[in-house]
Write a protein that binds this DNA or RNA. Structure first.
Lengths: 196, 196
DNA sequence: ATATAATTAGTGAATGTTCACTCTGCAAAG
DNA sequence: CTTTGCAGAGTGAACATTCACTAATTATAT
């Protein structure tokens, strides 16, 4: 299940990321990627079998990275509220450092490209849910978060709010401070879902 | 400011809509559009100057349609809560009848295409906010909705939740009943933002 | 009322560009 | 002497758009 990735492959997906941030998904062509790597187009095919594979490896890398980050960031002794805050702060600072992933993940242009890409993107969404659900559930059990609606509904609202935040950041060309705006959003969400 | 549109032009944007629902944004090519219209590709250029213009007119039409729907649907004597419900039910039933607009509006593939398209999409988003804000504000003033967070924050959360709902519906290929699921979502949101 | 001019809505072929991808060959490293 | 990493040139397909031309309708002048 684990995918191994060569140094050169890593360089390529980094270059792909750079292109994504600056030119968007439509700018991610083999030609541009080769130019960014400072070698020929055909050379790319020594390292990846297709463009689809490049995108998939890029997304798989993100999924793995997110999984690791989540697992290490959240410690068991934290309160659900603190876990919630940590999870999102972690997420915001990650995307702050790697804005190209925002383009990749929230791109439905990609969604249409292939079933395999679709699957990886679902996988990424599920990684997030997998870590968010226990936090929400625990908070509800401890009566810190509201029980007036189900955990699934809470997750939907939280994820939707987060995604919109990312969308706004992206169309603003990453110009505002996502960590600060994100903190704000987290606080508003917490105020709303916490029991008074 | 009002755009007038010929019968033929309307047929074309309807055909474009049909293609969007079935083949997505990448399927919306001049070739496919001509095939759907059962005439040649060049004939399209008798009615529109470019593909960009077709998309823009499609989106402008949506914006106009939304504006009208919102204005007529909500009556002044309703409670903020009822207005809120009406607004979203209206929205869900509209998208239920015209799922292609979901593809168009929530397509960031489109966002990258041109500045003009970008602007129309922002316009559509603002139409929604324009009608949502007074409802939220009124509800807060009347202490029906919570004042623990600002109206802007509330709107962000509400819009984010809505957008995610639409996203899920789309990747599920419009297979589930959006009106029913949407009602659920509205209720959950209301429970959360209402003062106890 | 009729000849003529203009407009409208279409065709089919062709344009130039971009795309992902392939083939052949060559230099260096193991 | 074979694998690896690359270059260069090239392929066919898809793309939006433009071209010259035509048939049918409509407006105008006689």
């Amino acid at each position: 299940m684990t995918i191994t990735i060569s140094d050169r492959q890593f360089e390529i997906i980094e270059a792909a990321g750079k292109i994504l941030t600056t030119f968007g998904i439509s700018g991610l062509t083999i030609k541009n990627l080769a130019k960014e790597m400072k070698f020929s187009e055909s050379a790319l095919y020594r390292h990846f079998t297709s463009k689809e594979e490049i995108i998939i490896v890029l997304l798989e890398y993100l999924a793995k990275n997110m999984e690791e980050r989540y697992t290490t960031a959240i410690s068991i002794e934290q309160s659900p509220e603190d876990k919630f805050i940590t999870l999102f702060q972690n997420q915001f600072s990650f995307f702050n450092e790697n804005p190209h992933f925002v383009v990749a993940v929230f791109s439905d242009g990609l969604l249409e490209e292939s079933i395999r890409i679709n699957e990886v993107m679902m996988k990424i969404m599920n990684v997030k849910i997998k870590h968010l659900l226990p936090i929400i559930s625990e908070g509800q059990q401890k009566k810190i978060f509201t029980n007036s609606i189900t955990s699934d509904e809470l997750i939907h609202i939280v994820m939707g709010t987060f995604r919109l935040q990312m969308f706004k950041w992206r169309i603003a060309n990453f110009q505002f401070d996502i960590s600060r705006n994100g903190d704000n959003m987290i606080q508003a969400l917490l105020t709303l879902i916490k029991n008074k």
